[in-house]
Amino acid sequence: MSVDEIKIKVKDSLKRLLEIGEQEVTDQEDLNQLGMDSMSSVNLVVELEEMFDIVFDDEELLFENFSTVQKITDIVERKLVLPQ
């Protein structure tokens, strides 16, 4: 799966979870400013794990790792490339 495909899926999930419709989400935009809170973060993590068939380690579950689309894409890409 390409980085662009990952990014599209991440953005689609965020738009649905944050209920922001078709609003454009940039790669570096602070998701907290779009309404990302602890509950939506947990929902996003669960959805990403199911969508990409990955598991995030406890030490990876920091808000800073999920604060922008780019950071989320990077961590998902690493999980897909590295063996579980």
Rank of each mutant, 00 (worst) to 15 (best):
M36W: 04
F52E: 00
E22V: 09
V69C: 05
S40G: 08
E47P: 03
E50T: 06
E77K: 04
Q23F: 03
E49Y: 02
S41K: 13
L18Y: 01
T68G: 11
V25K: 05
D37Q: 09
F52Q: 00
T26L: 13
K79A: 06
K79L: 07
N43W: 10
L17M: 10
L82Y: 03
P83A: 11
N65L: 03
F63L: 14
D30M: 11
I20L: 10
E22G: 08
E29D: 04
M39R: 08
V81M: 11
V76M: 03
P83D: 08
Q84P: 14
V42W: 05
G21D: 09
V25C: 09
E22N: 11
V45D: 03
L48V: 02
T26N: 12
Q84C: 11
K79D: 03
D37I: 10
T73C: 13
E47S: 15
I72T: 04
N32A: 14
E64D: 12
V55L: 14
L62S: 13
M36P: 00
Q33T: 13
G35E: 10
N43V: 07
L48C: 02
V45N: 05
S41E: 08
F56S: 10
G35K: 15
E24W: 08
L44Q: 00
L48W: 00
E50D: 15
R78N: 09
Q23R: 13
L34P: 01
I75G: 02
M39G: 06
Q70A: 15
I75R: 01
V55Y: 07
V46I: 14
L34H: 05
F66K: 05
Q28D: 12
E77Y: 02
E24I: 15
L61T: 12
P83Y: 06
E29Q: 15
I72P: 00
E64W: 14
D37K: 07
Q23V: 05
S40C: 08
L44C: 02
V42H: 09
L17A: 07
E77F: 01
N32I: 15
D58V: 14
S40L: 14
K71Q: 12
V76H: 01
D27T: 04
F63E: 15
V55F: 11
L62A: 15
Q33H: 10
N32Y: 08
L34N: 04
I54G: 02
E60V: 07
V55S: 15
K79C: 06
I20H: 06
Q84Y: 08
E24M: 11
T73Y: 01
L31F: 04
D30N: 13
L62Y: 09
L48N: 00
L34K: 06
L61C: 14
E59L: 06
R78D: 08
Q23H: 04
L34T: 04
L48T: 00
V55Q: 13
L82K: 10
S40T: 15
D58E: 13
K71E: 14
Q70M: 12
V55W: 12
E47G: 09
F56I: 08
L48K: 00
M36F: 11
V81Y: 06
K79Y: 03
E77N: 13
D37Y: 08
V76Y: 00
V46T: 11
V45E: 03
V55A: 11
